[in-house]
Amino acid sequence: MVASLRGVSQTMATIADELIERRGHAASATRRRTNFVIFLGPAIVLTVLFFIVPVIIDIAVSFTDLGRSLRITAFTTEQYEKVFRTDRRLTQVIGLTFVYVFGTLAIFNVTFGLILAITTTAIRNVSGSFFRGVWLLPRMSPSVLYILLWLWAVSPTEAGLVNQVLMQAFGLDAPLDLLTSAPIALIIISNGFIGASMGMIIFTAAIRGIPEHLFHAAAVDGAGTFATIRFITLPALRWPISFVTIYQTLSLLVSFEYILLLTKGGPFYDTTVYALYVYRRAFESGQYAYGAALALFLIVIGMVVALIGWRFFDMERLLQRPRIEVH
């Protein structure tokens, strides 16, 4: 009697265990699905809505003849023929884009950012923060305001800041018209002043992350300032420099608002970089379908540049291996 009772209770316990187990599985599966929707849902919706859908629309439009009339009359590949055959301006635009992107990157976003980071971390903390703050101002000010200041600075009249300095301090006779005589330099400088601050911040953080005893060791080993920068600081900045280069290349490729505000792409097409060229074709000339075809190439170029950069800087290694070292 006792034995059979024990047997029954054991069987019941097993069944209960199984039930709980199964319910547990069911619950965790539901929870996993809920978590997926809660955590990834918003990001997926946004990605689809603002990245994937526009690309699809862009591709679709590029195969039409959508123009100023906003009416599609035929599906055609003529936009692509235009890109590869008839548009003679494109070579110049691509050349300029190359100069603009790599000029801004090489002079400001990486090199000047590095110089700012190294100098502001070498001086006293308070002064360092102050100068970093100053160099962040262009990024924090509204783009229209920032460009208005530039327009005043390079104004071709005697009232322009540059002309005031040149004429009064250096005795220049007639005011310079920099917007006409040096427009490419102007768009590189005005973008670079903003772009340098991102590199500055990232490099500063990386320099701060270098263990102090490495600098001490280098000093005892006989390294001077430049040797310390070369042998200690720069090697530690390898990954940040790679990241800033790739990231800024992409953002310079697609952004054109400062150029549009400052020179409107002119004089003529002299400062019309690729992204601005797309904008001008589509929204100024009303060649929407052609703009769409051009934009598609911008997407492709962006992906190619990103992949080349990824390979070139061996970014895969950065992401795979934890970079934590115990010092």
Binding site: P211, H213, H216, A217, A218, F231, I232, H327
Partner: peptide, 9 residues
């Protein structure tokens, strides 16, 4: 140094 401070690269 306590942490040896070898140049990692």
């Amino acid at each position: 140094f306590q942490s040896y401070a070898l140049y990692p690269h």
